[in-house]
Amino acid sequence: MASAAPARTRSPFPRRRLLATGALGLAAAATLGAVAPASAAVLDDGDLAAQESAQWTEEFLTRPETREGFVLEAMDDWQVANATFIIAVVKGHELGEEVAVVALITAIVEAWLYNYEPAVDADSGGLFQQRPSMGWGTYDEVRHKKHALDAFLGLGEHSQAPGLLQVVPDVASWEPGAAAQAVQASAHPERYTELVGAAREIWDRFADDVEPYTA
């Protein structure tokens, strides 16, 4: 992998701010400050909602496609940030662990938890490698993390493709890998099931500290 997430000791950022971003490593937090200077300021408690909303940006979490693979214990800042973003949005929709696990394993298998800018396969892109030609939204929408995740969940008004809650309304009763495959129709369905354990570990590590995201 590119790098292991740096230690989070002696952080120059308030603990509350780090928890709002899902315990991002310092490198990602520093990058956030460069991309969105206004969000780097320490806000009063009354401004926490605005602060948390500002943490979830699109640009600083986007990087070119690589094929480095996925190693749970070597997740870099990009992967931690995208994983915790998925958890935050799922919680914002008042959905639980099972839905988050399906979304996480899909983003791991499809894009190693990176929000890819270039097309990787035909016209696919983003966290879920969604294809505009298949009704998942425009070029920009499939690369916009919130739009892409909402579309995957079946909650994106911009998407014409059936998402998880439409294809598998009783998702909690499904094996997560099978639920992911029902949405993605992959040529390699076994890959989703292989990542279920990693996705549950990610949920266990971060879910309690990640605030729901509803914007």
Rank of each mutant, 00 (worst) to 15 (best):
176 P>Q: 01
36 A>N: 15
55 Q>D: 10
195 L>S: 07
160 Q>E: 10
164 L>K: 01
175 E>P: 05
97 E>C: 10
181 Q>K: 06
143 R>M: 09
97 E>S: 12
46 G>M: 06
173 S>G: 11
173 S>N: 08
60 F>K: 02
160 Q>D: 14
147 H>E: 02
104 L>F: 08
99 V>G: 03
118 P>V: 06
38 A>K: 05
52 E>C: 03
75 M>W: 09
41 A>E: 15
37 P>D: 02
187 A>D: 14
82 N>Q: 15
59 E>K: 05
31 T>S: 08
174 W>N: 00
96 G>D: 02
18 L>T: 09
44 D>A: 14
59 E>T: 00
84 T>M: 07
165 L>Q: 10
165 L>G: 05
17 R>P: 00
73 E>F: 12
41 A>N: 03
146 K>Y: 11
136 W>E: 06
98 E>S: 11
68 E>H: 07
19 L>K: 15
196 V>N: 07
176 P>F: 11
206 F>S: 04
150 D>K: 09
116 Y>K: 09
28 A>H: 13
15 R>V: 11
167 V>R: 13
61 L>V: 09
87 I>E: 06
165 L>N: 01
194 E>Q: 15
136 W>Q: 08
198 A>G: 04
164 L>G: 00
142 V>S: 00
160 Q>K: 14
68 E>F: 06
19 L>N: 13
147 H>P: 00
72 L>Y: 14
130 Q>R: 13
145 K>Y: 12
57 T>P: 00
196 V>P: 11
173 S>H: 06
85 F>E: 11
38 A>M: 06
106 T>S: 06
14 P>M: 12
82 N>C: 05
154 G>P: 00
58 E>D: 05
